Simulated assay, not measured.
Amino acid sequence: MSIRENLEKLNNSIEAAALKAGRTSSEIKLMAVSKTKPLEQIREAYDAGQRLFGENRVAEAQEKFASLPEDVDLHLIGHLQRNKVKTGLSVFDCIQSLDSRELAEKLVQNYKNQIHEMKDLPIRVLLQLKTAEEGSKTGFSSEEEIIETAGWLREQQGVRIEGLMTIAPFTDDESVVREAFARCRILQEKLMSLYRDQDFSVLSMGMSSDFEWAVLEGSTLLRVGSALFGGRF
């Protein structure tokens, strides 16, 4: 199947999952995870109407997306090394993987120092909650850390929290995956109650293997790669 056909199939699956959850598909955005994918496939997805893309690495995204139109909304979904912050903020429209207080402080400091070089102001971020035990997964290890960091960021200039992100455990056990998503949603509700002047409306949860469960648990942004582009190159 072509990328256009895969995109149509995905949108139909999202609509069906939303209906099952008593939601509307208009509440849910689809991100094309284009890491490791060649520019030709990214252009094909763009030509099919896709505008939201996610990349894991700063240098790869910088190279591939330099020639894409400006209406692309490009998000970083991988760990952002502190020595790559300045470049990352010139490339990405949103940092979904804000995974530590130290990185939050680095973003704020970079805003103060490099305000005229950034792609988007204020810096849009999601706070990443670690809900999986795999060693390769990053994120805040406790909800308390996220709550404290969110409270600190409210007092700073230049960074706008838009919600939360999580990567569920790598398992086909639906109950385990949905429990991870539910934990993130419950934290979102807690943050909305604590900080009523903030948005927190984005819940970035769900990938190719579990996005239908994520929709059932309230996801508003799905990060889908292989189901759209096919296997890795």
Rank of each mutant, 00 (worst) to 15 (best):
F92K: 11
I147W: 03
R185W: 14
E179V: 00
D199N: 15
E5Y: 03
V91F: 11
V224H: 00
Q128V: 05
S208E: 06
E70C: 03
R232V: 02
M207P: 00
E15H: 03
Q50F: 01
I167G: 00
V125T: 07
K119M: 11
Q198W: 04
L222R: 00
K84P: 08
V177M: 03
K84L: 10
Q156Y: 06
G230A: 04
S100W: 10
L89F: 11
E117I: 00
D197S: 15
S208A: 06
L107M: 13
S141F: 11
T24K: 06
T220D: 07
S136R: 14
Q109N: 11
G206M: 11
A45D: 04
K137I: 15
Q109Y: 11
N56S: 14
D120F: 09
E55D: 08
L7W: 08
I147E: 11
L98E: 05
K35E: 08
H116W: 05
E63C: 02
K37M: 01
V177D: 10
D73R: 07
A32E: 02
K86H: 15
K137M: 15
W152K: 05
K190M: 07
A18H: 05
I146R: 02
E55F: 04
S26N: 15
K106E: 15
D93K: 06
E155V: 07
F170A: 10
C94F: 01
A17G: 02
A21F: 02
G218E: 07
A48L: 01
E27H: 06
D120Y: 10
C184T: 14
L191G: 14
M165T: 04
